[in-house]
Structure formats: C-alpha cells, structure tokens
C-alpha cells in the first residue's frame, strides 16, 4: 500500500496541469475537515489563566512609593472594587491603594460596576516602621472576567510580590510569587511555573549636551545603528509611565536591541539641558526622538508624551525597518 501510494503521489507532479488541479482538489477536500479540527483546538487554547489575563508587575518607584501595573489582555477586564493589597510585614504602614476611576459597566446581574480594560496603574504610599526588612512583601488580590463568548469569570486571585528594599529602582530582582485561588488549594508546581521576573526598562546612555548627543548619533551612524533619544525628568508624569510601562515591556525591549539608547535628563533645568531642549524645538519632557541609521532624525516619528507599548512598537519598526 505504502509504495503504491507514494508512487501515485510522485506521479502527480509529472502530470498535465488539469489533472494536477484535480488531484489538488481531492487533497484539499480531504484536508479540509482536518483543518477545521485544528481551528477547534486553537479555540480551546484561547482562554487564559488569571495570571496571564491580568499580568501584574510592581516597582518601588522611590522609597515609600510602590507602583503596581496590570497589563490586561484584550477582552478581559478587572473589577475596581475587587482589588485589595495587603502588606504581610507588621513593620510596614501603608495608605489605601490609589486606583484611577474605572469604566462604568452595567451588568444585569451585578448592577453598576467599575472595571478596567487594557491596563491599570495604581500606587500605594507606604512607610517602614521599626526594623527595616530586606524585602517588601505585598499580596495583591484582583478579580476579573472574559467579556466575549465564552463569557467566564475568575475567582479572586492573589499574587505575592517580593521587592527588595534599599534599591531605589527596585526593579532588579523583583519576583512575582505564586498565584493562588484565594480560598482553594495551591498547586505548587503551577505556582512555580508562573514565577517570573518583573519587566525592567533597558539601560540608557546619559547625554547632557548638544555636543554629546551629536557625537553619540554620529558614532551610531558609523556603526549603522539607529538611535533613540529620550528626554526625561523627575516629576514628569508621562516619563515614568513611558519608562515603567512602555520601555519595560519585553517586546519593546526586544525591538530596542538594535538601537543606541540615549537619555537626556533635564530635571536640573540648567543651561545645557535648556539648550538641548531648544535645539530640538521641545518645550519639556517626555519626548522621544528617533534617528535612522543614517544619523538623521525622523521628525515624522517624534513622540511627545506617553504612548502604550503596542503603538510604540509600531513607531520603532518604522524607524528601523
């Protein structure tokens, strides 16, 4: 059977086009139910586990300020009033979590609820009293649903985050510890699989003057590399979001691999910083300038303000096709 079949199969390719087309039709028709089956199994994979639908990361922005970020998968949402944060260490005094207003949703079964889609940023002020623990241990509970068919909801899920205290960025070794059903039993293996490092923004080369920027851009052009010049400052709202959400996103970090990354910190508001802003016609940060590998700025790709990772990726791809 085998050899006969394969001989027939091989002979397909030596036949006139009309006959080959007929055989092709037969093969396509035979393959069709199989393809349908593959589609079905693809849809079975579609629903995410809570930890993947609502990806939580945390960062100590500065001592006393903890920032939580949820990256919410498309078609999923989190309930605003189901978010709870608890510091297990008795030496930590924390204020209630600060959550932005959510989107209004009228649910015929739950009434009016406030929800978050796409992303959520929240912050918590805390103080360390007494003995200084080496880590800040915080458990974060959230709950949400998948809002298109099949509509499902997740039980409250708690993630335990451990962030090293003492490093200002706090982003170096932060680990998300196991996710558990709040009430149910834990599967330690599944919990281990879900452990992952917090996204970390890439390292930038500081530049402080027009000359430094020009030199760095020229060097990059000589090495045939594009440049990203980021204008940054403390107490600049968009800058921080750009840093912790956009630059830290793994896909963005990957896309930035080929770029020379420059950062002009204009917090000091000194002559050199003002000159640099003026040179590029900028009023204030945040601003992200992209230079092609020819050393010329792509004015059309300038970003003034914050941009979410997906759109920013799009912009990067245009700068470095």
């Amino acid at each position: 059977m085998g050899p006969v079949l394969s001989k027939d199969f091989l002979s397909l390719f030596s036949q006139p086009r009309r006959d080959r087309a007929l055989w092709g039709l037969l093969l396509a028709v035979l393959a069709w139910p199989a393809a349908g089956g593959a589609l079905d199994s693809a849809s079975e994979q579609a629903l995410l586990k809570a930890a993947d639908a609502f990806r939580l990361s945390a960062q100590i922005v500065r001592p006393g300020l903890l920032r939580l970020h949820w990256s919410i998968a498309p078609h999923y949402y989190l309930y605003r009033d189901r978010i709870h944060v608890d510091f297990s260490d008795a030496g930590i005094r924390a204020e209630p979590i600060r959550l932005p207003a959510g989107q209004e949703l009228h649910d015929p079964y739950l009434g009016h609820v406030e929800i978050y889609r796409d992303a959520l940023d929240a912050s918590i002020m805390y103080a360390v009293a007494g003995a200084h623990p080496s880590n800040l241990r915080v458990s974060v509970t959230s709950q949400g649903c998948h809002e298109i068919d099949p509509k499902i909801c997740y039980p409250p899920s708690t993630q335990i985050l451990e962030l090293p205290l003492g490093t200002v960025s706090g982003a170096d070794a932060a680990i998300v510890l196991p996710t558990t059903r709040e009430s149910g039993a834990t599967n330690p293996l599944a919990a281990l699989q879900r452990m992952r490092a917090i996204p970390r923004p890439p390292a930038f080369q500081p530049v402080g003057s027009i000359e430094q920027v020009q030199r760095a851009v020229a060097e990059a052009a000589a090495a045939d590399r594009p440049v990203l010049l980021d204008f940054d400052a403390e107490k600049c709202g968009g800058c921080e979001s750009l840093e912790t959400q956009t630059f830290a996103e793994p896909a963005v970090r990957d896309a930035l691999e080929g770029f020379v990354l420059l950062r002009a910190d204009v917090t000091a508001d000194d002559t050199a910083g003002r000159a640099l802003l003026r040179r590029y016609g900028l009023a204030r940060p945040p601003a992200v300038l992209l230079f092609g590998s020819n050393g010329k700025e792509r004015r059309d790709l300038r970003l003034l303000g914050f941009e979410a990772p997906a759109d920013f990726l799009h912009r990067l791809r245009k700068a470095s096709p």
């Binding site: 039709l25 037969l26 028709v29 069709w32 139910p33 079905d40 849809s43 068919d149």
Partner: peptide, 28 residues
C-alpha cells in the same frame, strides 16, 4: 472528492464538534 467533502462535513458536524449546533461561539 465529493464523497470526501461530504464525509469531511459529516465528521466536522457530528464527531469533531458534537456540542456545537450553532457554531457562533467557540465551545471550550
């Protein structure tokens, strides 16, 4: 080819997707 098409359709409808009379929403 037509026999295979009918067979494929029947398989798809009765064996591969037993509980999906309306195929609008993916049954998980």
């Amino acid at each position: 080819a037509s026999a295979a098409a009918c067979g494929g359709w029947w398989l798809q409808r009765h064996l591969l997707a037993p509980a999906q009379t309306p195929r609008s929403a993916p049954a998980i």
